[in-house]
């Protein structure tokens, strides 16, 4: 599923990675626990989370995750966006709950990791 499709399905806002909207994710993972995210082995993962702090971006960096959706209308700081840009991570802000975010993406055919 392409980044621009994700944005459309979620009626969401792209925060950084404007030039990479044709990036495609293959699987999705929803979690607020970063140690859990750090166990993932897959490539092209979309991370859906309600945890919006610097460690979310660091975790994406360490796990080679290149696209993150922040659910629950979480506000992303300028420092987070800067760190994401440095590491080629696309950030998307979405006003829906994590439940609805997962529901809409799953309903659009995005697969789960396991």
């Amino acid at each position: 599923m392409l980044v621009k499709e994700i944005i459309e399905v979620l009626d969401a806002r792209l925060l950084c990675g404007e030039e990479r909207q044709d990036y495609g994710v293959e699987v999705a993972f929803a979690s607020d626990l970063m140690s859990d995210v750090l166990t993932l082995k897959d490539d092209h993962v979309l991370l859906i989370t309600g945890l919006a702090n610097m460690q979310t971006i660091r975790t994406a960096e360490m796990s080679d995750i290149h696209c993150v959706v922040f659910a629950r209308n979480k506000k992303v700081s300028p420092e987070m966006i800067e760190l994401a840009r440095e590491n080629d991570i696309i950030l998307i802000e979405c006003r829906y709950s994590m439940f609805k975010t997962c529901g809409l993406l799953y309903g659009s055919g995005l697969k789960a990791i396991y």
Binding site: D32, L33, M34, S35, D36, L38, T39, T49, L51, N53, Q55, T56, T59
Partner: peptide, 12 residues
């Protein structure tokens, strides 16, 4: 609340 401390760090 920072997303850590669920007891997975050392096993990871």
């Amino acid at each position: 609340e920072m997303g850590f401390g669920a007891g997975m760090g050392l096993s990871n």
